[in-house]
Design a protein around this nucleic acid. Structure first.
Lengths: 273, 273
DNA sequence: ACCTCCTGTACGCTTTGCGTACACTCTGAC
DNA sequence: GTCAGAGTGTACGCAAAGCGTACAGGAGGT
């Protein structure tokens, strides 16, 4: 039995506050009070109280009966970045990788069944997807997700599979067994290549980034499109570079925290399995 | 008289929730319950209730008596980006500007007396500052801040001046009258150049981005360092490019929203003054 | 073994925050 | 012009949400 949600330790107003904050959306950029009440299922006075509170905190702004988010909402994420030294450390490595490959470089972490971009150096506009820091994509269909899952506790993998491997393109791996086999391959070879499983024509290579204890905490990726490279080229030329860069980030991170550099050699058989 | 903070419309628990969330920091990346209680001034049980709530929402994670933020915190900002179409629109323009200049390109909005980065294409590691989306810097000492203030309601300018123009380097403009004069110059010439007022050796050029109604809502900037360019070079070569790019973003934004393209010509005498 | 510092939980009280209900404004239809 | 209709803002009494004190239990250091 997991923690009870309706326990006395759950603060209703706080959850409601986030409900309202997250109700702002591409479809609802400037909602009225009534719209927000409808969208969240809360009463109008409740939403109003929340909005006034959020406004006093500087997160929303109301004018002319319509409300909108302020840039301060973006600053919330700074507290995540600031409390995870690896993000700042990885920046020069991301830049270098992007330069060397002339392709976008990304860093991501696992959050539930999604992968969240925590660092990124864009180079070209990749396909139709708008990727920015904080963006979420399903873990199962991306090379970064595969890497993170390959070294994650089995429980996470089960969760992802239970949530469903929906076909996003005709190439998406949707069979649980094939998926688990793929993760074993990733673990064995030390990197992941995914071609067109999230979006047609999108290619990416990804390798694990580790903390001091050797735990995989992030994935580094280089992304391109099928017009600019083939899977074989990625494997031969880009994959080693991505692995080396990921190892360099790990080394920086380990070195910084422990005072003694951790070997940058890829360690094949650590982790949770 | 402004809105009363202690009114019945202020939700205490919501404010406290943010207090706890924002207590995570570079100095406090993995705080214990007691640390957070001390940092926020709240009682331990109160903090615990908040943490459990935030955990159930997926924003924090507790293990071994220590708590940390999850990447989901970064995703909150997506709601800001998604509800401001201009950010996505500007992406290709930022990339192009960064390519043309071989320097980092940024987009920022005003939040109180700070400027918040809402879009960015990094090219090199600029000096010591770690700039990412969501980062905040004092408006008065940056070219983007000057641009935003030059076209902002006078009230904003007063606020910034009242908050104090502290010298961040030996070049920082700190005299209110000189500062106001500088804003008038920016308004007249249509762009701002700031050299080493935020950080020694940091140079940037910035121009306004407007919405459909002509209101300046963001600033576009190109940044470099004194080792790579002089103020005169920026003025002659980069400034026109930044202005043109900012106008192009404005045009895209106006066009998209109104169905009819707005002229990309820089409009000198609109705004709030 | 002791002491200290921490976390977790219980519990009764207060105050917070709730939603119903109503007054008011604005817009557009006719 | 008047009347709906849809929206916002406010009042208010009540339920319960959330509060902090107080205590129990653990881990780690001396």
């Amino acid at each position: 039995m997991t923690k009870d949600e309706n326990s006395r330790d759950h603060i209703q107003s706080l959850e409601r506050g986030f409900q309202v904050l997250l109700a702002f959306d591409a479809e609802r950029p400037n909602p009225s009070l009534a719209e927000l009440a409808a969208a969240t299922g809360l009463s109008r006075p409740a939403v109003r109280r929340i909005l006034i509170t959020l406004q006093s905190l500087g997160y929303v702004k109301g004018e002319g009966g319509h409300w909108s988010l302020t840039p301060r909402v973006l600053s919330i994420g700074q507290h995540y970045s600031a409390s995870h030294a690896m993000i700042e450390l990885s920046q020069p490595h991301l830049l270098r990788l992007a330069e060397q490959t002339s392709e976008s470089a990304s860093l991501a972490a696992l959050d539930g069944t999604d992968v969240v971009y925590i660092g990124r150096v864009p180079v070209r506009r990749i396909m139709s997807i708008n990727i920015a820091i904080g963006s979420r994509v399903p873990a199962y269909a991306t090379s970064m997700g595969r890497v993170l899952l390959a070294w994650a506790p089995p429980k996470h993998v089960d969760e992802v599979i239970d949530a469903g491997l929906r076909p996003l393109t005709k190439n998406t791996v949707t069979d649980p067994e094939e998926f688990r086999r793929e993760l074993r391959t990733v673990r064995a070879q030390g990197y992941s290549i995914v071609a067109g499983e999230l979006e047609e024509g999108l290619l990416s290579v990804s390798a694990p980034v580790r903390d001091q204890s050797g735990t995989v905490i992030a994935a580094l990726a280089s992304s391109t499109s099928s017009g600019r490279a083939t899977v074989d080229e990625l494997r031969a030329e880009i994959a080693p570079l991505v692995v080396r860069t990921a190892d360099a980030i790990s080394a920086d991170y380990g070195h910084r925290a422990s005072g003694k550099a951790i070997s940058t050699v890829h360690r094949e058989h650590e982790g949770f399995f």
